[in-house]
Design a protein around this nucleic acid. Sequence first.
DNA 1: AGAATTTGAGAAAGCGTTTTCTCGAAGCGT
DNA 2: ACGCTTCGAGAAAACGCTTTCTCAAATTCT
Lengths: 337, 337
Amino acid sequence: MARRPGTQRIGIADVATRAGVSHATVSRVMNGNFTVDPEIAARVRTAAAELNYQPNPVGRSLALGRTDTIGIVVPDLANPTFQAILRGLSMAAAQDGYRVLIADSSEVSSEEAILAGEARRRCDGVVLCAPRMSDAELEELAPSLHPMVLINRSTDAAQTPSLMVDYGLGIQELARHLVDLGHRKLAFLSGPERSASNAQRLVGLDKFRTDHPEIQLEILPGGSNFDSGHESAEAILASGATGILAFNDLVAMGLLSGLHERGVRVPEDMSITGFDDIPFARYTTPPLTTAAVPITELGDLAWRRMRELIQNKDAEAPRNTFQPQVEVRGSTGPAKA
Amino acid sequence: MARRPGTQRIGIADVATRAGVSHATVSRVMNGNFTVDPEIAARVRTAAAELNYQPNPVGRSLALGRTDTIGIVVPDLANPTFQAILRGLSMAAAQDGYRVLIADSSEVSSEEAILAGEARRRCDGVVLCAPRMSDAELEELAPSLHPMVLINRSTDAAQTPSLMVDYGLGIQELARHLVDLGHRKLAFLSGPERSASNAQRLVGLDKFRTDHPEIQLEILPGGSNFDSGHESAEAILASGATGILAFNDLVAMGLLSGLHERGVRVPEDMSITGFDDIPFARYTTPPLTTAAVPITELGDLAWRRMRELIQNKDAEAPRNTFQPQVEVRGSTGPAKA
DNA sequence: AGAATTTGAGAAAGCGTTTTCTCGAAGCGT
DNA sequence: ACGCTTCGAGAAAACGCTTTCTCAAATTCT
C-alpha cells in the first residue's frame, strides 16, 4: 500500500511525534480521557493546535463502528414534501452532530432496496421516506436495515418506528368539504401506483362512498408531480366532475395550470383540492384548498426516533399518526347550479 | 477492542472461510482482479452470494483513501434554489456511483468553514454553494478543501472551478424592463448582507444608475426568504417606488403576499420582479416576472467539475458564467399615469 | 530434463483511529 | 524500608478492507 508517496494529510502520528508521546496518548487526549497527566495533555493539545490536526473520520468510524451519519431514501427529491422532510431531518440531526446522506430512488421501487442497503452500510441508520416497495419486501428488508425509521409507511418487522399521516381521513374530509359546497360529481386524481399513501386515500374514498352513496366519485389514474396533473386536465374535463381531489398539491397545481389553459375557471367552474400544504400551496392562483400535513416536523420527529434507536438498540418502536388539517382556500367554491 | 461481542455483520473473513481461501483472494475476486483461477473465483462468488456478503464501505474507504461521497454546504436548505442545486448535484453524482452528504449553515457564515472542513474530511470533495464567508477566508480555506467546486462565488485560489451567474446583468435587465414599462421610481429589496450574489446585484444596479440618471432607485435592506419579503411590504410602500426589484423569487412572493394584504394591486399599482425562476414562480398570483437561472443544471455541472477534479487532481479549473434570462409574466405592468 | 519464466494465492503490511493490555514508576500504609 | 495499590503511558491488537510482497507450483524454453 503506497497509494500516496510522500507527505499528505497530517495524522495522529504526527501529533504524537511532535508532542513526544505515543499516538495512544494523543487519542486519549483528543477524546477527553482524563487518565492523562495534565502537563502532557497540554503538550498534546498545543501540538495538535500547531499542526491543525483533525482526526480522520474514516479511521475513527472504523474503530468506533459508527459514522455519525444517517441516510435517507426518498422517491423524488424534486417533490417539496420530501424536500421539507429532508430539511427537518437534516436540521434535527445536525443538532446532535449527525450528518445526512441522501439517496433518490426516482420512484423506481426496485432501486429502493439497493439504495437503502447501501446507505445503511455507510451510515448508522436509515430513514425510508414513503417507500414504494411491497409490504413483504419492506418487512424482509427491515432487519438488515435496522436502525430504520419509516415515514408514510409501517411494517410488522420489530423495532421499526413509523411516522404516519392519516391520508384516508384527510381525503374524506376534503371530499366532505366539496360535498358541503354542493358538488355531486367528484373525481380523484390518483397518485403513483405503488404509493402506500395513495392506497390509503383510496381506502378513505371507499369509506366515503359508502357514507355518501348519493355522490358520484370517479377514480382517475395520475402521478405525483406537476406534469402529471397538467396532463390530466383533459381527462378531468371528460369526467364531468366538478369537484376534483388531486393526489397532492403538486398535482393540483399542474391541474390548475392545465385547466387555466383550457379556459376553465377555478373555483367558479370547478373546485380543486390538493394535499400536504406545501409552502407554495397558498400562493397559487387561486390559493389551494388542501389538507395540511406537518411535513418538516415529520423529518424532525424521524430524527428523534432514529436517535432513540441508535442510543438504545432495544428501544420500543412507536407508531405516530398525524391528522391532516383541512385548509380551505380559494380553489374550492360552491358548485354551479 | 471488543465493542461487539459475538456474531455480527458478516465480513470478508467469513466469505474466505466458507470458500476455503484467504481474504486476499476474496478481495481480488470482489474487485474483478483477473489473476484468480476461474474455478476459485466461482467458489468465492457463490460463497459471497450465499452469505449475502457486501463489503464494508468504511473499511474500504480507509484502505482506498476515498469515500465515494461528496459534500455540499448550503446557506439554507429551505430555499428552493439550493434545493434544486442539491437535486441536480445528487442526481448527477448518483449516476457515477457517488452519494452526497448535506450540510446547512443556516446563513451563519462562521459555521461554513467548520461544516465545509468536516464535510471535506468525510468526503472526496466538497461543493460550496453561495458561501457567505469573505473572499479572504474563502481563499485561505480553498487549499485545505480541494477538490472543491464553488457555486455563485469565485476565488483566486488555484484549481477551484466556479459556476457563476451574472446577477449584475440580470438585475439590470429587469430594471430596464421596468423602465420600459414606464416606471421612474424603482426600489431594490436587497438580500443577505454577506451574499456575494447580492453584491453583484448592487454593482449591476450602480451601473444601471449611471446608464439611467433620470431614474430614481432606492436600496432597501431585506433578506432571502419569504418572510423577509413579507415584512418589507410597509417599507416598500413608504418608499413610493412603483417598480420593485426583489432579491429573489421567494422575497418577491413574500412581498406579493404582504402587499396583497394591504390592498395593493399587482401589477396595476405596483410592479414586482423576482430572481431565479424557481419552479413555483409561474404559479403565483400574478405569475412572477423574474430572471431565470438554470439552477438544476448548475448542480449537474457542479458534479461534472467535481468529477474532473477527483479523477485528475491537476485538472484545470474553469469558470462558467450563466446569463440569466428575463421571463416576463404577470407581476409587472405599465406604470400608472 | 533442468533452468528460466510465468501464474496464482497466501502472508502480511498498511490505511488512521480507539481501546485493551501490560508494565514501570510513583504513592500509600505499616 | 518493604510490599501493596494506583496511576499513567507505551505497545499492540482490533476495526474491515486493499495491495504489495513472497514463494510454491505450473508452465515454457533450450
